[in-house]
Write a protein that binds this DNA or RNA. Structure first.
Length: 106
DNA sequence: TTTCTGACAACAA
DNA sequence: ATTGTTGCCAGAA
């Protein structure tokens, strides 16, 4: 059995994030077995980013802060994408991300 | 091959 | 509570 690399698992999880929902780097990392690998999550997205249909805008840090915003094309493209899905964003931060949070384990 | 770095988060002081 | 260091995995130089 070929086990997917951490790298591939991240892609799989992020692509599974439902519309109108968001998750965090830590949640994905924890789901993969080690929450300290949260760093890798962002790293993977950075490599794939537009390369695949990965909704990277639905992934934020544990504060709900749009840390990856500066990696998107526009200045506020990430925020617009989120707002487009009904997610309220204020000052680069998701408002009450708790109600939008999606746990990959579910 | 060794070393550094990276969309973060936890831990130590 | 705040600041600095460590951990994680893979890729680039």
């Amino acid at each position: 059995m070929k086990e997917k690399s951490f790298y591939d698992k991240v892609i799989d999880v992020v692509k599974a994030i439902p519309y109108g929902k968001i998750t965090t780097y830590g949640a994905i990392a924890a789901y993969l077995g080690n929450k300290r690998s949260s760093r890798m999550v962002g790293w993977v997205l950075n490599r794939q980013k537009n390369n695949s249909n990965i909704p990277a805008h639905r992934v934020v840090n544990r504060n709900g802060l749009l840390t990856g915003k500066f990696h998107f094309q526009g200045s506020n493209l990430m925020q617009e994408l989120l707002e487009n899905e009904g997610i309220e964003v204020k000052n680069n931060q998701i408002v009450k991300m708790e109600r939008y949070f999606w746990n990959p384990e579910l």
